[in-house]
Amino acid sequence: MLTKTGVPTAQELDRVTPTRHRLEQGPVAIIECFQQIPCNPCFLSCKQGAIQEFSDINDLPVLDDSKCTGCGICIANCPGLAIFVVDYSYSPDEGLVKLPYEFLPVPEIDAQVDALDREGRIAGKGRVVKVQRFKGQERTPVVWLAVPKDLVMSVRNIKVGGQSHAR
C-alpha cells in the first residue's frame, strides 16, 4: 500500500495509465499523483490544456490523454516529481521514459545507465537519449531514457556511473 511503503500499487497505477491503444500512438504523460494535496502547477504548466482545470486546489490531476502530446513540461514543473512521459512508439524494440532527475552528475547523451524501478531496484539498462531543460525549471532536468519496451512501465529512475545514492 502506498501510504505504508511509498510505492504505488498496481491498482493505483492502473487508474492513471492510458489505454494500450493510446500508449502505442506515441508519447503521453503518466501522472503518478495519488494523494490529495494542495498543489496545481501541472494544470498551470500544460500548454495543451490536457490537464483538467482544478475546481479545488486539492483535486487530483485528471489527464485528457487525447490532448496530451507528451511534451514533458509538466514533468519539470511538478513539485512532487511525480509525472513521467512514456513513448512506446520510439522504436520497434525500445520505448522511451522521460523522467525528472535532480542528481549530479547529470548523465551524458548516449550514456548507458542502470534503470531503476519504483523501489530503486535495478530493472535493467537504459540509454540516455536526451537531457531536456525547461525554461525556469533548469534545475529539474528531464532525462529521456530508452529502455526495452517491457520496462517502460516499471522504470522510474536511473543510477548514473554506478553511483549509489542509498543503502
Binding site: L2, T3, F34, Q35, C78, G80, H165
Partner: peptide, 28 residues
C-alpha cells in the same frame, strides 16, 4: 547514503510524492 527512514506510525506522515521520490532512489 540514507540507510532507511524509520516511522512509528503505520503510515507515511508526509506527502506521498516525496516518499515515492526517495523510494525509487532505493531508500526503504
Amino acid at each position: 547514503q540514507v540507510a532507511g527512514i524509520v516511522e512509528a506510525a503505520p503510515g507515511i506522515g508526509g506527502y506521498l510524492v516525496h516518499a515515492a521520490k526517495i523510494r525509487r532512489a532505493g531508500v526503504p
